[in-house]
Design a protein around this nucleic acid. Structure first.
Ligand code: MN
Ligand code: MN
Ligand code: ZN
Ligand code: ZN
Lengths: 136, 136
DNA sequence: GTGAAAATGATTATCATTATCGTTATCACA
DNA sequence: TGTGATAACGATAATGATAATCATTTTCAC
């Protein structure tokens, strides 16, 4: 089955090479914001010759096209996810790294307000909430 | 004049070596969240032998003691500031890198609420608002 | 002053990411 | 269907920020 991301890649007019198809599919198969080497490992299951260089290149390409969002939670290596229709932010479990996505209209509005109060236009933001399970 | 940071270093019982004193002073002399090599360059003005290794070591030490806060705005190299009494977040000009500090009680409360609604305890967060001057 | 422990400076190692470059695949068109 | 131009790939080297190592120097309690 063709993944949503594969369709979007071909819609850009970009060459949908075997490697790009495999990488796109790998991202969809892994849950929760995979890292570059998680994506590479998953891609290797389909084509054991796919190069890490191609993975880096392709992820950057997809990101520049707006098909992927790149995150750098916690100053660590990059993690990716399919770009979503609607913006969201993340709760991140500091033990396990697991994330929960959320969107808070109130916060988003306040952020814009704060920028405006300072005579500035809000272009983007990063908000990450680092959490623990309640009983710990 | 002894800087606030120098006093706080000696209060920890830590050896206040010449290098640590110079690095502490350098941080206070530079405005707006200096990077490691900005701090190093400023320190070299006082002692031209101070090693970049000592700067990294000392910054990490001060951070672990809670005397400094470390930021990684925009996926780039680390920037430091003296730890403040009260928490704040940052507006960051995406052209110049200049920052404005702010604190919004409402947002802070909402963040805690969001964590709690998900059965989680909020340990910390990162919030950066990326902005442009209004006429651009 | 002396010796153990800590700190420093110089240098090397690490790790994620990017650049390079020779080879291979793709595509427009004859 | 061949053919060249161009794009993409794989292997590997380079980069850049930061951490680790280790021999030397400094500090401090005695
Ligand atoms: Mn997400
Ligand atoms: Mn600040
Ligand atoms: Zn948001
Ligand atoms: Zn905050």
């Amino acid at each position: 089955m063709e993944s949503r991301l594969e369709k979007r890649v071909s819609n850009t007019g970009l060459r949908l090479t075997a490697q790009r198809r495999i990488i796109a599919r790998a991202i969809c198969l892994i849950e929760d914001h995979p890292s570059v080497d998680e994506i590479h490992r998953k891609a290797l299951e389909t084509n054991p010759n796919i190069s890490i260089a191609t993975v880096y290149r392709t992820l950057r390409l997809f990101e520049e096209l707006g098909l992927l969002d790149k995150h750098e939670f916690n100053q660590s290596r990059a993690r990716y996810e399919e770009a979503t229709e609607n913006h969201h932010d993340h709760l991140i479990d500091i033990e396990t790294g697991k994330t929960i996505e959320f969107h808070d209209k109130e916060i988003e509005a306040l952020q814009k307000e704060i920028a405006n109060e300072n005579g500035l236009r809000l272009i983007g933001h990063r908000m990450e909430l680092y959490v623990r399970p309640l009983g710990s």
